[in-house]
Write a protein that binds this DNA or RNA. Structure first.
Length: 294
DNA sequence: ACCCAGGTTGTCA
DNA sequence: TGACAACATGGG
């Protein structure tokens, strides 16, 4: 294991400041599964083919990158929506008439949907069924460590679809994916013959994209919605998971049974940036801060 | 030891 | 359509 050689820390200009709590939620709250905290409390993660370090200092975001795997500032600016496009969308959410949402927005000021790589997002959420975020992170790490190419130091790229399609049973077994191994392998066998699947999928309207994603093995409505939201920046996509079902049931008094009914509620109530609202509600619910504590 | 997890799939009425 | 069990694995 080689030691990573870093540039100096520098400030990433952001239209809106970001607090440590919000940064942690963005990096480790279930959007991405690849960021890790080092012993100094700084975040380290792979971003494209580069390695990036992140930390908060007085609500400013500071970053550095590895000399052997350099990240450019404009890539990072895009990743974090540094220009603040999402801030406008958040302001257009119905928080003025929705005290639950208002509270959620205040819990995680500046929370954004980060611009994640679609490949990474799809792999992550193919691993997500019936698993906690901690364990999804571990599965994704296993895939990178066992089958991925090195970027720098001990940090690996995630394996390509062709590598995953040809992985042996033993190799996948070593990643501890459980029954999700077949999801990964079978989706890989579909996508390995479509090297520009991201470009093709990106052309689709959001409903068509979600439908297309669901043709992949192991991708149902919820995973498709997450990939559309986090991997393709479709901010209107409203993933309905156990947290959102619980949150909408308790905070909005809904008593639906079918996930699709919660999704319809979300889309109508929150509008074209419903996925952003979903993230605030999801984060607040998971933190136990959705409802005013007794 | 026991329960459950950012769900999906297959099956049966 | 709608309900329901099975699915592999590991942390609490």
């Amino acid at each position: 294991m080689t030691t990573l050689s870093w540039t100096e820390w520098r400030t990433l200009p952001l239209s809106h400041p970001v607090a440590e709590k919000t940064l942690a939620e963005q990096l480790d709250g279930g959007q991405s599964f690849r960021w890790e905290k080092d012993k100094d409390g700084d975040w380290i993660g792979p971003l494209g083919n580069s390695i990036v370090g992140l930390r908060c200092a007085k609500n400013n975001l500071e970053w550095r990158t590895c000399f052997s795997a350099v990240c450019k500032e404009d890539f990072l600016s895009s990743y974090f929506d540094a220009q603040g496009r999402q801030a406008m969308l958040v302001d257009h959410l119905p928080w003025r008439s929705d005290p639950v949402l208002h509270r959620a927005l205040k819990n995680f000021p500046g929370l954004r949907i980060l611009k994640h790589d679609p490949h990474e997002t799809l792999i992550g959420f193919l691993c997500s069924s019936n698993k906690r975020i901690l364990q999804i992170r571990q599965m994704v790490a296993n895939l990178a460590n066992q089958l991925g190419e090195p970027i720098a130091g001990s940090i690996n790229q995630l394996p390509s679809w062709s590598v995953l399609a040809q992985a042996t049973d033993a190799e996948l077994k070593a990643c501890a994916l459980g029954y999700r191994a077949n999801f990964i392998r079978n989706t890989a066998r579909v996508l390995e013959s479509q090297p520009d699947w991201v470009g093709e999928f990106q052309k689709l309207s959001t409903p068509d994209l979600i439908e297309k994603l669901q043709t992949l093995p192991g991708v149902g409505p919820k995973v498709a919605a997450c990939v559309a939201l986090f991997g393709f920046q479709r901010l209107e996509s409203f993933p309905v998971d156990t947290w959102i079902v619980q949150a909408l049931s308790s905070a909005y008094g809904l008593n639906y049974k079918r996930p699709v009914d919660f999704e319809t509620f979300g889309r109508i109530h929150f509008g074209s940036a419903a996925g952003l609202a979903q993230q605030y509600l999801f984060a607040s619910a998971r933190a136990g801060q959705l409802l005013p504590s007794a």
